[in-house]
Amino acid sequence: MHHKVCFTDPTMGTSAAKYLAEKYADAKTALFYNSGDTYGSGVADAFARQAKASKLDIVDTETFKDDSVTCFTNQLTRAMRKIKIEGLTGELTWNDEGQVEKPATAYVIQDGKYIAA
């Protein structure tokens, strides 16, 4: 009887989360990983644990199941739908095509006074 044993290196995921927390503490983060691979899943799990401990804002987790995947449009679009940005003109969100749902409004300010939008 043969058993397959896979070891993962959680330090890679932990280190990545610590780096992001240090350099991009206020950023919104999406976690993408290969769920069909034990190593990738282990690194992603370690990243998620450290991200939580470091108070990173993970807005979405997306997976793919094959290392040959080269297009991540679907995953990126799903992740973007979960990001909301508060700005001067209100909240920006994205639609299913990855386009901004509410375009930003330009304000005209002259000599410190609001003139038009």
Rank of each mutant, 00 (worst) to 15 (best):
S35R: 07
L56S: 03
T105P: 03
A104N: 12
K55L: 02
T61L: 01
A46E: 02
I109S: 10
T8L: 02
Y33C: 01
T93P: 09
M12L: 13
H3S: 06
A30T: 09
D96Q: 12
S54Y: 00
A21R: 03
L88A: 14
A48I: 00
E86I: 06
S35D: 14
M1Q: 13
G36R: 05
G42W: 05
L88G: 11
E62Q: 15
Q99E: 12
T93S: 15
K28H: 08
F32D: 00
Q50V: 04
E97G: 10
K4Y: 13
R81E: 13
P10K: 06
D96R: 14
Y114W: 09
G90Y: 09
Y24G: 04
A51C: 05
D26C: 00
V108A: 10
V43K: 01
D57G: 02
T63G: 03
Y39A: 13
K82E: 10
I109G: 08
A44T: 04
E97Y: 15
A44W: 03
L56G: 05
K55V: 02
A53E: 14
K4E: 14
E91N: 09
D67C: 01
G87T: 12
V43F: 05
H2T: 11
S35P: 01
F64V: 03
A116I: 05
A21D: 06
L92K: 09
Y39N: 11
D37S: 08
A25H: 13
V5R: 07
M80T: 06
M80I: 04
K102I: 15
L88D: 11
F7E: 12
A104D: 10
L20F: 14
G42C: 02
K18L: 11
R81A: 14
A44F: 05
T70Q: 11
L88Q: 13
L20K: 05
I85L: 14
G90N: 06
M1N: 14
A27I: 02
H2E: 10
Y114K: 07
R49K: 14
T29Y: 07
K23Y: 08
Q99M: 10
G112H: 08
Y39Q: 07
A117S: 15
R81T: 14
Y114H: 12
V43N: 02
D37W: 01
S35A: 14
D26Q: 08
D111Y: 10
K52M: 01
F47L: 05
K65C: 01
D67V: 05
A16Y: 07
Q75K: 01
T70H: 04
N95D: 15
V69P: 00
A21L: 03
A27M: 03
K18G: 09
A79D: 05
G40P: 02
G42H: 05
A53H: 02
F72W: 04
C71H: 08
